[in-house]
Amino acid sequence: MSTGVAGMAPDVQEPAVVATPRRRRPMTPSMRIGLTLVGLIALLALVSFVWTPYDPTAIDADARLTGSSASHILGTDKFGRDVLSQIMWGARTTLFVGVVAVGVAALLGTPLGVLAGMAPRGVDQFIMRACDLLLAFPALLLAIMFGAVFSASTLTAMLAIGLATVPAFARIARGGTLQVVRSEYVLAARSAGRSRWAIARRHVLPNIAPLLIVQSSVAFGIAVLAEAALSFLGFGTKPPNPSWGRMLQESQETLHSTPMLSVWPGLAIALAVLGFNMLGDGLRDRFDPRLDDRR
């Protein structure tokens, strides 16, 4: 899979065979680690709704750059804001951006992919060439364009990341659809006079769902990286709402005196991306039957 800020190019591997629930395998260590990390981030985000050690936006001039202490476990930043509280709120921002961006990508990409897989060749080619074209506009570039025309915000970042990830979902959905529509039960359904819409809803979507779940996890990792990069550049979440990318950007000014201010949000981003990547790998191991031969 392609990650990295630089690597915002979405994973475009097409599935070979659609998995069925019967073929699921037990959880791999990769999936367990991924689930644990993602669970931890989700827990931080959930707890932040009811409790944080301090108000993450509260400025305290007397407690600037304190470093780790009993009252501020991860220290404070140059404005005296509690770093742990900001990390907890940042988890919320990260997950929110990820959910919306992946949701946009899945809601647009899946129907496009299914349509391409079931429609005549001309429509299929048109949709897939349009997706190829969209791949030339990575999330970062799209978000900067949005930022140039409209005012940069969390919304523009989410939309940009979502749109840039549409081709990956469309390709996965198309690949899965092409296999399902060639199966005997779909031929039988066609013979029985079922409409394309009914076949898509009843046979295609349930069968390609596992592939889409795997892709969602992979896309989530990419979205986390993209959101962090955009906030770092000032094209994502705006102050005073905490975000890990902006915490990193602000920490650059105090790198000489308090380098740990870069480490905490950096660690949060890396662990979140690692979690979603490993979860994606684990889910692929669980659902992708091609891997049976490789064990």
Binding site: V5, G221, G266, A270, V273, L274
Partner: peptide, 18 residues
């Protein structure tokens, strides 16, 4: 390599500068 792929380039940049 799995761990390295999860680190954004700008984070690597900041840590290398530090």
């Amino acid at each position: 390599s799995q761990l390295g792929a999860a680190v954004p380039a700008f984070l690597a940049g900041i840590l290398l500068v530090a």
